[in-house]
Design a protein around this nucleic acid. Structure first.
Ligand SMILES: [Mn+2]
Ligand SMILES: [Mn+2]
Ligand SMILES: [Zn+2]
Ligand SMILES: [Zn+2]
Lengths: 138, 138
DNA sequence: TTATAAATGCAAGTGAGTTGCATAAACTAT
DNA sequence: ATAGTTTATGCAACTCACTTGCATTTATAA
């Protein structure tokens, strides 16, 4: 994606344009899988780990990224759809974690099925993590 | 549950009977929600945190507990069904996380719906976490 | 260009999770 | 019941991701 496109994405989310943010966003757009803080630290040694941490947080808050829960404890992040905003996140797709290569990816085209909860409960969101073997590792 | 019942559960999983394991198992049986290592540390100050940590792990390995992933990073654990064994875990129920009180619970009667993944992918397991407001907090 | 607000880097702290090892306790076999 | 064997426990110490404070630098607006 062009540098100008990247800048307009940041602007539309009311974020200042900085080298770190441009690089991190480009990285997310290039990678098909979800990324962790550690992935960013390995990729961008020129930036302080705290800066990368805060970059992830600002992207989370502004609706550019969403956090993907998993059992290992280290958070991973994936790009949000255009429909996401700081106020309203729409993440109704399935996440897949490969037990061989460890990669987590957003299956954007796979919609999370509707579910019901017991009487008196109210649903805000649903997160579905499927684990198994990805096509590359099969 | 009686002390004898608790002991037989441990024995059937080939675990030695210790005070810590009996207490922790009783705690899980009493609590309706899932518990974290921190919850155990608060409840049982007489046991070292490492002992509680290893108690959770031995219960995990032997199929007494299952780990419930969530976005906060701190792992929580819930009781397995009778059908679970060290070799084969069967956790096809939905987990609910209340955004008000923070409690995570197993909705044992709510079965995770079947899903499909792209061609070439293989499914090992599915984890579904619904978040919202529980009946108590509503 | 200057003023203001925000982002960055560095240092330092938190808290869960983990391991090694000596001691204590649970089980097994006399 | 006792002695021998195996396992669990407590303590110290470590890793690692995550988080905060503060001084400095940079981006943006006036
Ligand atoms: Mn996703
Ligand atoms: Mn459960
Ligand atoms: Zn893979
Ligand atoms: Zn609640």
């Amino acid at each position: 994606m062009s540098q100008e496109n990247l800048k307009s994405i940041l602007k539309s989310h009311e974020l200042r344009i900085t080298d770190c943010r441009l690089d991190v966003m480009q990285f997310f757009l290039n990678e098909k899988g979800a990324l962790s803080q550690g992935d960013l630290e390995n990729q961008f040694t020129q930036y302080d780990r705290v800066t990368l941490y805060r970059t992830l947080n600002s992207f989370l808050d502004s609706g550019i990224l969403h956090k993907i829960p998993n059992e290992t404890g280290t958070a991973t992040y994936g790009l949000c759809h255009d429909t996401c905003s700081p106020d309203h996140h729409e993440h109704n797709h399935i996440h897949f974690k490969c037990n061989s290569c460890g990669q987590i990816e957003c299956l954007d085209e796979k919609v999370v099925p509707k579910v019901t909860v017991p009487t008196g409960y109210k649903i805000d969101g649903v997160n579905m993590i499927v684990d198994g073997i990805c096509a590359t590792c099969a």
